[in-house]
Design a protein around this nucleic acid. Structure first.
Lengths: 237, 237
DNA sequence: CGGATCCTTCGGCCGCCGCCGAAGTGTCCC
DNA sequence: GGGACACTTCGGCGGCGGCCGAAGGATCCG
Protein backbone atom coordinates (compact mmCIF):
# COMPACT_ATOMS: atom_id res chain seq x y z
CA UNK A 1 0.00 0.00 0.00
CA UNK A 2 2.44 2.57 1.20
CA UNK A 3 5.23 1.45 -1.08
CA UNK A 4 3.77 1.83 -4.52
CA UNK A 5 6.37 1.82 -7.23
CA UNK A 6 5.28 4.05 -10.11
CA UNK A 7 7.37 2.12 -12.59
CA UNK A 8 5.76 -1.14 -11.55
CA UNK A 9 2.34 0.48 -11.80
CA UNK A 10 3.06 1.66 -15.31
CA UNK A 11 4.50 -1.69 -16.31
CA UNK A 12 1.49 -3.55 -14.99
CA UNK A 13 -0.86 -1.17 -16.72
CA UNK A 14 0.88 -1.59 -20.06
CA UNK A 15 0.89 -5.36 -19.74
CA UNK A 16 -2.74 -5.22 -18.65
CA UNK A 17 -3.67 -3.67 -21.96
CA UNK A 18 -2.35 -6.75 -23.74
CA UNK A 19 -3.51 -9.23 -21.13
CA UNK A 20 -6.91 -9.83 -22.64
CA UNK A 21 -7.57 -12.30 -25.38
CA UNK A 22 -9.79 -9.99 -27.37
CA UNK A 23 -7.34 -7.11 -27.24
CA UNK A 24 -4.50 -9.50 -28.04
CA UNK A 25 -6.37 -10.66 -31.13
CA UNK A 26 -6.72 -7.04 -32.20
CA UNK A 27 -3.05 -6.27 -31.71
CA UNK A 28 -1.99 -9.38 -33.60
CA UNK A 29 -4.34 -8.55 -36.44
CA UNK A 30 -3.03 -5.00 -36.57
CA UNK A 31 0.50 -6.36 -36.96
CA UNK A 32 -0.27 -6.36 -40.66
CA UNK A 33 0.55 -2.66 -40.42
CA UNK A 34 -2.72 -1.52 -41.87
CA UNK A 35 -5.66 0.32 -40.39
CA UNK A 36 -8.76 -1.67 -39.49
CA UNK A 37 -12.20 -0.39 -38.70
CA UNK A 38 -13.76 -1.09 -35.34
CA UNK A 39 -16.37 -3.30 -36.95
CA UNK A 40 -13.84 -5.41 -38.79
CA UNK A 41 -11.98 -6.04 -35.58
CA UNK A 42 -15.19 -6.89 -33.75
CA UNK A 43 -16.06 -9.52 -36.32
CA UNK A 44 -12.48 -10.76 -36.34
CA UNK A 45 -12.48 -11.19 -32.59
CA UNK A 46 -15.99 -12.54 -32.44
CA UNK A 47 -17.40 -10.08 -29.90
CA UNK A 48 -20.12 -7.46 -29.96
CA UNK A 49 -19.38 -4.10 -31.50
CA UNK A 50 -19.98 -2.43 -28.19
CA UNK A 51 -17.46 -4.63 -26.44
CA UNK A 52 -14.81 -3.95 -28.98
CA UNK A 53 -15.46 -0.25 -28.91
CA UNK A 54 -14.51 -0.19 -25.26
CA UNK A 55 -11.38 -2.20 -25.92
CA UNK A 56 -10.33 0.26 -28.59
CA UNK A 57 -10.81 3.16 -26.21
CA UNK A 58 -8.50 1.55 -23.71
CA UNK A 59 -5.86 0.67 -26.28
CA UNK A 60 -5.90 4.18 -27.72
CA UNK A 61 -5.83 5.78 -24.28
CA UNK A 62 -2.92 3.53 -23.41
CA UNK A 63 -0.99 4.73 -26.42
CA UNK A 64 -0.84 1.39 -28.16
CA UNK A 65 -3.13 2.36 -30.99
CA UNK A 66 -3.57 5.46 -33.09
CA UNK A 67 -7.00 6.24 -34.42
CA UNK A 68 -8.28 8.17 -37.35
CA UNK A 69 -11.92 8.99 -37.74
CA UNK A 70 -13.33 9.13 -41.22
CA UNK A 71 -17.01 9.73 -41.49
CA UNK A 72 -18.83 7.04 -39.64
CA UNK A 73 -15.77 4.82 -39.55
CA UNK A 74 -13.14 4.62 -36.86
CA UNK A 75 -9.89 3.43 -38.33
CA UNK A 76 -7.31 2.19 -35.92
CA UNK A 77 -3.72 1.05 -36.33
CA UNK A 78 -0.68 0.35 -34.17
CA UNK A 79 0.63 3.62 -32.79
CA UNK A 80 4.16 3.25 -34.11
CA UNK A 81 6.98 0.86 -34.86
CA UNK A 82 7.86 0.63 -31.18
CA UNK A 83 4.50 -0.79 -30.31
CA UNK A 84 4.71 -3.19 -33.23
CA UNK A 85 8.08 -4.37 -32.01
CA UNK A 86 6.71 -4.89 -28.54
CA UNK A 87 3.86 -7.04 -29.77
CA UNK A 88 6.21 -8.98 -32.02
CA UNK A 89 8.58 -9.63 -29.15
CA UNK A 90 5.79 -10.87 -26.94
CA UNK A 91 4.37 -13.01 -29.72
CA UNK A 92 7.77 -14.51 -30.41
CA UNK A 93 8.15 -15.31 -26.74
CA UNK A 94 5.04 -17.45 -26.68
CA UNK A 95 6.14 -19.34 -29.74
CA UNK A 96 4.52 -20.24 -33.00
CA UNK A 97 0.77 -20.34 -33.01
CA UNK A 98 -0.59 -23.79 -32.35
CA UNK A 99 -2.61 -23.26 -35.44
CA UNK A 100 0.41 -24.37 -37.45
CA UNK A 101 0.63 -27.55 -35.43
CA UNK A 102 -2.94 -28.67 -35.30
CA UNK A 103 -5.08 -26.81 -37.80
CA UNK A 104 -8.77 -26.90 -37.12
CA UNK A 105 -9.99 -26.71 -40.66
CA UNK A 106 -8.65 -26.83 -44.17
CA UNK A 107 -9.19 -23.12 -44.54
CA UNK A 108 -7.24 -22.33 -41.39
CA UNK A 109 -4.60 -24.82 -42.36
CA UNK A 110 -3.94 -23.32 -45.74
CA UNK A 111 -4.10 -19.84 -44.27
CA UNK A 112 -1.59 -20.92 -41.67
CA UNK A 113 0.87 -22.34 -44.15
CA UNK A 114 0.51 -19.27 -46.34
CA UNK A 115 1.43 -17.19 -43.30
CA UNK A 116 4.40 -19.46 -42.63
CA UNK A 117 5.57 -19.08 -46.24
CA UNK A 118 5.49 -15.32 -46.28
CA UNK A 119 3.83 -12.48 -44.46
CA UNK A 120 4.33 -8.94 -43.35
CA UNK A 121 5.31 -8.24 -39.78
CA UNK A 122 4.02 -4.71 -39.27
CA UNK A 123 6.13 -3.09 -41.98
CA UNK A 124 8.72 -5.69 -42.96
CA UNK A 125 8.83 -9.19 -44.41
CA UNK A 126 8.58 -12.28 -42.22
CA UNK A 127 7.96 -15.99 -42.42
CA UNK A 128 10.07 -18.20 -44.66
CA UNK A 129 10.26 -15.30 -47.13
CA UNK A 130 11.68 -12.93 -44.54
CA UNK A 131 14.18 -15.48 -43.28
CA UNK A 132 15.30 -16.39 -46.79
CA UNK A 133 15.92 -12.78 -47.72
CA UNK A 134 17.74 -12.13 -44.44
CA UNK A 135 19.92 -15.19 -44.93
CA UNK A 136 20.69 -14.20 -48.51
CA UNK A 137 21.75 -10.73 -47.39
CA UNK A 138 23.97 -12.29 -44.75
CA UNK A 139 25.50 -14.85 -47.10
CA UNK A 140 26.44 -12.09 -49.52
CA UNK A 141 28.14 -10.07 -46.81
CA UNK A 142 25.52 -7.34 -46.88
CA UNK A 143 24.28 -7.98 -43.37
CA UNK A 144 26.36 -8.75 -40.30
CA UNK A 145 24.77 -11.29 -37.98
CA UNK A 146 27.78 -12.82 -36.24
CA UNK A 147 28.68 -9.98 -33.95
CA UNK A 148 25.30 -8.32 -33.70
CA UNK A 149 22.87 -7.22 -36.34
CA UNK A 150 23.89 -4.44 -38.72
CA UNK A 151 24.18 -3.60 -42.39
CA UNK A 152 27.72 -3.67 -43.75
CA UNK A 153 29.12 -1.00 -46.05
CA UNK A 154 28.46 -3.40 -48.92
CA UNK A 155 24.91 -3.67 -47.64
CA UNK A 156 24.40 0.08 -47.74
CA UNK A 157 25.74 0.09 -51.29
CA UNK A 158 23.40 -2.74 -52.23
CA UNK A 159 20.33 -0.81 -51.08
CA UNK A 160 21.61 2.23 -52.96
CA UNK A 161 22.18 0.21 -56.12
CA UNK A 162 18.79 -1.44 -55.89
CA UNK A 163 17.19 1.98 -55.73
CA UNK A 164 15.78 1.40 -52.27
CA UNK A 165 16.15 4.57 -50.26
CA UNK A 166 16.92 4.33 -46.57
CA UNK A 167 15.59 7.37 -44.82
CA UNK A 168 17.18 7.97 -41.49
CA UNK A 169 14.54 9.64 -39.42
CA UNK A 170 13.97 9.66 -35.74
CA UNK A 171 15.84 7.17 -33.66
CA UNK A 172 14.61 4.09 -35.39
CA UNK A 173 17.56 1.80 -36.09
CA UNK A 174 18.55 1.19 -39.68
CA UNK A 175 18.69 -2.55 -39.17
CA UNK A 176 17.18 -4.51 -36.34
CA UNK A 177 16.54 -8.17 -35.68
CA UNK A 178 12.94 -9.26 -35.30
CA UNK A 179 12.40 -12.78 -34.05
CA UNK A 180 10.21 -14.74 -36.41
CA UNK A 181 7.57 -16.72 -34.57
CA UNK A 182 7.19 -19.39 -37.21
CA UNK A 183 10.86 -19.85 -38.02
CA UNK A 184 12.22 -19.01 -34.57
CA UNK A 185 15.07 -17.12 -36.15
CA UNK A 186 15.73 -13.41 -36.61
CA UNK A 187 14.77 -11.58 -39.77
CA UNK A 188 15.52 -8.07 -40.94
CA UNK A 189 13.44 -5.27 -39.44
CA UNK A 190 14.05 -1.59 -38.80
CA UNK A 191 14.30 1.09 -41.47
CA UNK A 192 16.00 -1.22 -43.96
CA UNK A 193 13.46 -4.00 -43.41
CA UNK A 194 10.59 -1.60 -43.90
CA UNK A 195 12.09 -0.08 -47.03
CA UNK A 196 12.74 -3.50 -48.51
CA UNK A 197 9.19 -4.64 -47.82
CA UNK A 198 7.68 -1.48 -49.24
CA UNK A 199 9.82 -1.83 -52.36
CA UNK A 200 8.87 -5.51 -52.71
CA UNK A 201 5.19 -4.63 -52.64
CA UNK A 202 5.55 -1.55 -54.86
CA UNK A 203 7.66 -3.35 -57.43
CA UNK A 204 5.30 -6.31 -57.52
CA UNK A 205 7.82 -8.75 -56.07
CA UNK A 206 5.05 -9.98 -53.84
CA UNK A 207 1.36 -9.37 -53.36
CA UNK A 208 -0.95 -9.72 -50.41
CA UNK A 209 -3.19 -12.77 -50.29
CA UNK A 210 -6.63 -12.30 -48.86
CA UNK A 211 -7.21 -9.58 -46.37
CA UNK A 212 -4.62 -10.44 -43.78
CA UNK A 213 -0.88 -10.51 -43.38
CA UNK A 214 0.05 -13.31 -45.75
CA UNK A 215 1.92 -12.44 -48.95
CA UNK A 216 2.88 -14.44 -52.02
CA UNK A 217 6.00 -14.03 -54.14
CA UNK A 218 5.24 -13.36 -57.81
CA UNK A 219 7.19 -14.58 -60.83
CA UNK A 220 8.64 -11.09 -61.09
CA UNK A 221 9.66 -11.31 -57.48
CA UNK A 222 11.35 -14.66 -57.93
CA UNK A 223 13.40 -13.26 -60.77
CA UNK A 224 14.32 -10.11 -58.86
CA UNK A 225 15.28 -12.00 -55.71
CA UNK A 226 17.43 -14.35 -57.78
CA UNK A 227 19.10 -11.56 -59.73
CA UNK A 228 19.74 -9.32 -56.73
CA UNK A 229 20.38 -11.85 -53.97
CA UNK A 230 20.83 -15.21 -55.62
CA UNK A 231 17.75 -16.56 -53.88
CA UNK A 232 16.63 -19.93 -55.18
CA UNK A 233 12.92 -19.80 -55.90
CA UNK A 234 12.50 -23.26 -54.43
CA UNK A 235 13.41 -21.92 -50.99
CA UNK A 236 10.31 -19.78 -51.05
CA UNK A 237 7.81 -22.60 -51.40
CA UNK B 1 -16.23 -18.06 -28.36
CA UNK B 2 -16.00 -20.22 -31.43
CA UNK B 3 -13.07 -18.35 -32.92
CA UNK B 4 -10.43 -18.62 -30.24
CA UNK B 5 -6.98 -17.85 -31.52
CA UNK B 6 -4.39 -19.90 -29.63
CA UNK B 7 -1.70 -17.35 -30.28
CA UNK B 8 -3.83 -14.57 -28.86
CA UNK B 9 -4.64 -16.74 -25.85
CA UNK B 10 -0.96 -17.36 -25.19
CA UNK B 11 -0.09 -13.72 -25.71
CA UNK B 12 -2.79 -12.58 -23.29
CA UNK B 13 -1.71 -15.13 -20.75
CA UNK B 14 1.91 -14.03 -20.90
CA UNK B 15 0.97 -10.38 -20.59
CA UNK B 16 -1.39 -11.30 -17.77
CA UNK B 17 1.52 -12.57 -15.75
CA UNK B 18 3.09 -9.13 -15.88
CA UNK B 19 -0.17 -7.22 -15.60
CA UNK B 20 -0.22 -7.05 -11.84
CA UNK B 21 1.57 -4.43 -9.84
CA UNK B 22 2.91 -6.84 -7.27
CA UNK B 23 4.26 -9.24 -9.86
CA UNK B 24 5.65 -6.32 -11.85
CA UNK B 25 7.53 -5.14 -8.77
CA UNK B 26 9.01 -8.62 -8.42
CA UNK B 27 10.11 -8.77 -12.03
CA UNK B 28 11.69 -5.34 -11.87
CA UNK B 29 13.50 -6.22 -8.67
CA UNK B 30 14.75 -9.44 -10.21
CA UNK B 31 16.21 -7.45 -13.09
CA UNK B 32 19.26 -7.17 -10.89
CA UNK B 33 20.03 -10.65 -12.16
CA UNK B 34 20.28 -12.20 -8.73
CA UNK B 35 18.13 -14.66 -6.86
CA UNK B 36 15.76 -13.35 -4.20
CA UNK B 37 13.94 -15.29 -1.54
CA UNK B 38 10.17 -15.27 -1.43
CA UNK B 39 10.21 -13.36 1.84
CA UNK B 40 12.50 -10.65 0.52
CA UNK B 41 10.20 -10.10 -2.40
CA UNK B 42 7.15 -10.02 -0.15
CA UNK B 43 8.67 -7.30 1.99
CA UNK B 44 9.85 -5.47 -1.10
CA UNK B 45 6.38 -5.51 -2.60
CA UNK B 46 4.64 -4.80 0.70
CA UNK B 47 2.23 -7.74 0.64
CA UNK B 48 1.69 -10.78 2.83
CA UNK B 49 3.99 -13.75 2.41
CA UNK B 50 1.04 -15.89 1.44
CA UNK B 51 0.05 -13.50 -1.31
CA UNK B 52 3.50 -13.42 -2.75
CA UNK B 53 3.85 -17.16 -2.62
CA UNK B 54 0.92 -17.47 -4.98
CA UNK B 55 2.37 -14.89 -7.31
CA UNK B 56 5.62 -16.80 -7.46
CA UNK B 57 3.81 -20.00 -8.32
CA UNK B 58 2.16 -18.30 -11.26
CA UNK B 59 5.35 -16.71 -12.49
CA UNK B 60 7.25 -19.97 -12.26
CA UNK B 61 4.45 -21.93 -13.92
CA UNK B 62 4.39 -19.32 -16.67
CA UNK B 63 8.07 -19.80 -17.31
CA UNK B 64 9.12 -16.30 -16.35
CA UNK B 65 10.97 -17.33 -13.22
CA UNK B 66 13.26 -20.20 -12.31
CA UNK B 67 13.27 -21.38 -8.74
CA UNK B 68 15.77 -23.13 -6.58
CA UNK B 69 14.88 -24.52 -3.19
CA UNK B 70 17.50 -24.48 -0.50
CA UNK B 71 16.42 -25.66 2.88
CA UNK B 72 13.53 -23.57 4.01
CA UNK B 73 14.28 -20.88 1.47
CA UNK B 74 12.82 -20.56 -1.99
CA UNK B 75 15.18 -18.67 -4.21
CA UNK B 76 13.79 -17.31 -7.40
CA UNK B 77 15.34 -15.52 -10.37
CA UNK B 78 14.45 -14.56 -13.92
CA UNK B 79 14.27 -17.68 -16.05
CA UNK B 80 16.77 -16.53 -18.67
CA UNK B 81 18.10 -13.61 -20.66
CA UNK B 82 15.06 -13.66 -22.93
CA UNK B 83 12.73 -12.97 -20.07
CA UNK B 84 15.03 -10.24 -18.81
CA UNK B 85 15.01 -8.65 -22.22
CA UNK B 86 11.25 -8.78 -22.33
CA UNK B 87 10.88 -7.05 -19.00
CA UNK B 88 13.47 -4.48 -19.99
CA UNK B 89 11.67 -3.76 -23.24
CA UNK B 90 8.39 -3.29 -21.46
CA UNK B 91 9.97 -1.13 -18.80
CA UNK B 92 11.64 1.01 -21.43
CA UNK B 93 8.31 1.44 -23.19
CA UNK B 94 6.68 2.98 -20.14
CA UNK B 95 9.57 5.36 -19.68
CA UNK B 96 11.69 6.36 -16.76
CA UNK B 97 10.19 5.83 -13.36
CA UNK B 98 8.47 8.91 -12.05
CA UNK B 99 10.60 8.43 -9.00
CA UNK B 100 13.36 10.26 -10.84
CA UNK B 101 11.04 13.15 -11.52
CA UNK B 102 9.38 13.61 -8.17
CA UNK B 103 11.15 11.70 -5.46
CA UNK B 104 9.09 11.07 -2.37
CA UNK B 105 11.86 11.08 0.14
CA UNK B 106 15.53 11.83 0.38
CA UNK B 107 16.31 8.16 0.61
CA UNK B 108 14.37 7.34 -2.53
CA UNK B 109 15.81 10.35 -4.25
CA UNK B 110 19.39 9.39 -3.62
CA UNK B 111 18.65 5.76 -4.44
CA UNK B 112 17.06 6.95 -7.69
CA UNK B 113 20.01 9.05 -8.72
CA UNK B 114 22.41 6.26 -7.84
CA UNK B 115 20.37 4.03 -10.15
CA UNK B 116 20.52 6.68 -12.84
CA UNK B 117 24.29 6.94 -12.49
CA UNK B 118 24.98 3.27 -12.87
CA UNK B 119 23.19 -0.02 -12.40
CA UNK B 120 23.01 -3.52 -13.71
CA UNK B 121 20.27 -4.45 -16.12
CA UNK B 122 19.96 -8.21 -15.56
CA UNK B 123 23.51 -9.07 -16.58
CA UNK B 124 24.92 -5.97 -18.23
CA UNK B 125 25.64 -2.35 -17.34
CA UNK B 126 23.00 0.37 -17.65
CA UNK B 127 22.32 3.91 -16.57
CA UNK B 128 24.75 6.70 -17.31
CA UNK B 129 27.57 4.21 -16.82
CA UNK B 130 26.20 1.83 -19.44
CA UNK B 131 25.57 4.61 -21.91
CA UNK B 132 29.00 6.12 -21.39
CA UNK B 133 30.72 2.82 -22.00
CA UNK B 134 28.59 2.12 -25.06
CA UNK B 135 29.32 5.56 -26.48
CA UNK B 136 33.03 5.15 -25.85
CA UNK B 137 33.05 1.81 -27.65
CA UNK B 138 31.23 3.41 -30.55
CA UNK B 139 33.49 6.47 -30.70
CA UNK B 140 36.52 4.21 -30.89
CA UNK B 141 35.09 2.22 -33.76
CA UNK B 142 34.62 -0.90 -31.67
CA UNK B 143 30.86 -0.90 -31.90
CA UNK B 144 28.75 -0.12 -34.95
CA UNK B 145 25.57 1.79 -34.15
CA UNK B 146 24.88 3.63 -37.39
CA UNK B 147 23.68 0.74 -39.49
CA UNK B 148 22.42 -1.51 -36.72
CA UNK B 149 24.09 -2.72 -33.57
CA UNK B 150 27.14 -4.97 -33.83
CA UNK B 151 30.72 -5.31 -32.71
CA UNK B 152 33.29 -4.45 -35.36
CA UNK B 153 36.39 -6.54 -36.01
CA UNK B 154 38.31 -4.00 -33.96
CA UNK B 155 35.74 -4.50 -31.23
CA UNK B 156 36.30 -8.25 -31.16
CA UNK B 157 40.03 -7.61 -30.95
CA UNK B 158 39.49 -5.15 -28.09
CA UNK B 159 37.62 -7.71 -26.01
CA UNK B 160 40.33 -10.23 -26.75
CA UNK B 161 43.07 -7.80 -25.77
CA UNK B 162 41.27 -6.81 -22.59
CA UNK B 163 41.13 -10.45 -21.61
CA UNK B 164 37.33 -10.55 -21.66
CA UNK B 165 36.22 -13.81 -23.19
CA UNK B 166 33.13 -13.87 -25.37
CA UNK B 167 31.58 -17.28 -25.25
CA UNK B 168 29.30 -17.98 -28.12
CA UNK B 169 26.70 -20.30 -26.75
CA UNK B 170 23.14 -20.85 -27.70
CA UNK B 171 21.53 -18.34 -29.95
CA UNK B 172 22.08 -15.36 -27.78
CA UNK B 173 23.42 -12.52 -29.93
CA UNK B 174 26.96 -11.32 -29.28
CA UNK B 175 25.87 -7.70 -29.17
CA UNK B 176 22.38 -6.39 -28.72
CA UNK B 177 20.89 -3.00 -27.99
CA UNK B 178 18.97 -2.62 -24.76
CA UNK B 179 16.99 0.57 -24.37
CA UNK B 180 17.94 2.38 -21.20
CA UNK B 181 14.91 3.62 -19.34
CA UNK B 182 16.68 6.48 -17.61
CA UNK B 183 18.74 7.67 -20.55
CA UNK B 184 16.28 6.70 -23.28
CA UNK B 185 19.15 5.54 -25.44
CA UNK B 186 20.47 2.08 -26.29
CA UNK B 187 23.30 0.50 -24.33
CA UNK B 188 25.28 -2.66 -24.95
CA UNK B 189 23.62 -5.94 -23.99
CA UNK B 190 23.93 -9.50 -25.23
CA UNK B 191 26.93 -11.77 -24.68
CA UNK B 192 29.42 -8.91 -24.94
CA UNK B 193 27.46 -6.71 -22.54
CA UNK B 194 27.22 -9.51 -20.01
CA UNK B 195 30.91 -10.36 -20.29
CA UNK B 196 31.89 -6.74 -19.87
CA UNK B 197 29.70 -6.34 -16.82
CA UNK B 198 30.96 -9.52 -15.23
CA UNK B 199 34.54 -8.42 -15.86
CA UNK B 200 33.85 -4.98 -14.42
CA UNK B 201 32.53 -6.51 -11.21
CA UNK B 202 35.23 -9.18 -11.01
CA UNK B 203 38.04 -6.74 -11.65
CA UNK B 204 36.68 -4.27 -9.15
CA UNK B 205 35.91 -1.59 -11.72
CA UNK B 206 32.61 -1.14 -9.98
CA UNK B 207 30.86 -2.44 -6.89
CA UNK B 208 27.23 -2.87 -5.98
CA UNK B 209 25.72 -0.29 -3.64
CA UNK B 210 23.22 -1.53 -1.14
CA UNK B 211 21.19 -4.58 -1.95
CA UNK B 212 19.69 -3.55 -5.24
CA UNK B 213 20.75 -2.89 -8.79
CA UNK B 214 22.77 0.28 -8.36
CA UNK B 215 26.54 0.14 -8.84
CA UNK B 216 29.32 2.62 -8.24
CA UNK B 217 32.51 3.02 -10.24
CA UNK B 218 35.66 2.67 -8.14
CA UNK B 219 38.92 4.56 -8.54
CA UNK B 220 40.36 1.44 -10.14
CA UNK B 221 37.41 1.42 -12.52
CA UNK B 222 37.89 5.04 -13.48
CA UNK B 223 41.51 4.36 -14.36
CA UNK B 224 40.69 1.22 -16.31
CA UNK B 225 37.89 2.88 -18.26
CA UNK B 226 40.14 5.79 -19.10
CA UNK B 227 43.03 3.59 -20.15
CA UNK B 228 40.98 1.16 -22.19
CA UNK B 229 38.29 3.41 -23.60
CA UNK B 230 39.33 6.97 -22.95
CA UNK B 231 36.34 7.54 -20.73
CA UNK B 232 36.48 10.80 -18.79
CA UNK B 233 35.72 10.10 -15.15
CA UNK B 234 33.61 13.24 -14.96
CA UNK B 235 31.10 11.68 -17.34
CA UNK B 236 30.34 9.05 -14.77
CA UNK B 237 29.16 11.41 -12.05
C1' DC C 1 13.19 -32.08 21.49
C1' DG C 2 11.29 -27.23 21.27
C1' DG C 3 11.17 -22.91 19.33
C1' DA C 4 12.05 -19.97 15.50
C1' DT C 5 11.90 -19.11 10.68
C1' DC C 6 10.30 -19.60 6.04
C1' DC C 7 7.01 -20.90 3.10
C1' DT C 8 2.38 -22.86 1.50
C1' DT C 9 -2.56 -23.95 1.57
C1' DC C 10 -7.18 -22.70 2.42
C1' DG C 11 -11.40 -20.08 2.97
C1' DG C 12 -13.58 -15.94 2.40
C1' DC C 13 -14.03 -11.23 1.00
C1' DC C 14 -14.08 -7.66 -2.32
C1' DG C 15 -13.38 -5.15 -6.42
C1' DC C 16 -12.37 -5.06 -11.16
C1' DC C 17 -13.36 -6.07 -15.78
C1' DG C 18 -15.16 -8.31 -19.89
C1' DC C 19 -19.41 -9.37 -21.83
C1' DC C 20 -23.99 -8.40 -23.78
C1' DG C 21 -28.22 -5.99 -25.56
C1' DA C 22 -30.76 -1.86 -25.89
C1' DA C 23 -30.89 2.70 -26.66
C1' DG C 24 -28.61 6.84 -28.39
C1' DT C 25 -25.48 9.75 -31.52
C1' DG C 26 -23.35 10.93 -35.62
C1' DT C 27 -22.61 10.21 -40.71
C1' DC C 28 -23.59 8.87 -45.30
C1' DC C 29 -26.54 8.10 -49.25
C1' DC C 30 -30.63 8.26 -51.91
C1' DG D 1 -35.85 14.41 -45.16
C1' DG D 2 -35.58 9.56 -44.20
C1' DG D 3 -33.44 5.33 -43.73
C1' DA D 4 -29.37 2.59 -43.36
C1' DC D 5 -25.08 2.13 -41.26
C1' DA D 6 -21.08 2.52 -37.91
C1' DC D 7 -20.03 3.31 -33.65
C1' DT D 8 -20.74 4.62 -28.54
C1' DT D 9 -22.91 4.78 -23.99
C1' DC D 10 -25.18 2.64 -20.33
C1' DG D 11 -26.92 -0.72 -17.04
C1' DG D 12 -26.49 -5.05 -15.36
C1' DC D 13 -24.57 -9.58 -14.92
C1' DG D 14 -21.05 -12.98 -13.85
C1' DG D 15 -16.57 -14.56 -13.09
C1' DC D 16 -11.88 -14.10 -12.21
C1' DG D 17 -8.25 -12.87 -9.32
C1' DG D 18 -5.73 -10.37 -5.68
C1' DC D 19 -5.76 -9.77 -0.89
C1' DC D 20 -5.57 -11.23 3.92
C1' DG D 21 -5.22 -14.08 8.22
C1' DA D 22 -5.09 -18.45 10.23
C1' DA D 23 -3.53 -22.86 10.19
C1' DG D 24 -0.38 -26.31 8.56
C1' DG D 25 4.02 -28.29 6.80
C1' DA D 26 9.10 -28.06 6.33
C1' DT D 27 13.59 -26.92 7.82
C1' DC D 28 17.11 -25.19 10.75
C1' DC D 29 19.30 -24.33 15.23
C1' DG D 30 20.39 -24.76 19.93
Amino acid sequence: MTTRDPQATALARLAGLIADETRAMCLLALLDGRAWTAGELARHAGVADSTLSEHLCRLVAGGLLAEERQGRHRYVRLADARVAQLVEDLAAQVGPADRAVRPRSLRESSAGSAMARGRTCYDHLAGRLGITVTDALTARGLLEQETGFALTDAGLAWFEAAGIGLERRGRRPLARACLDWTERRPHLAGVAGAALCRHALDAGWCVRIGSERAVKVTATGERALFDLLGVDAAALR
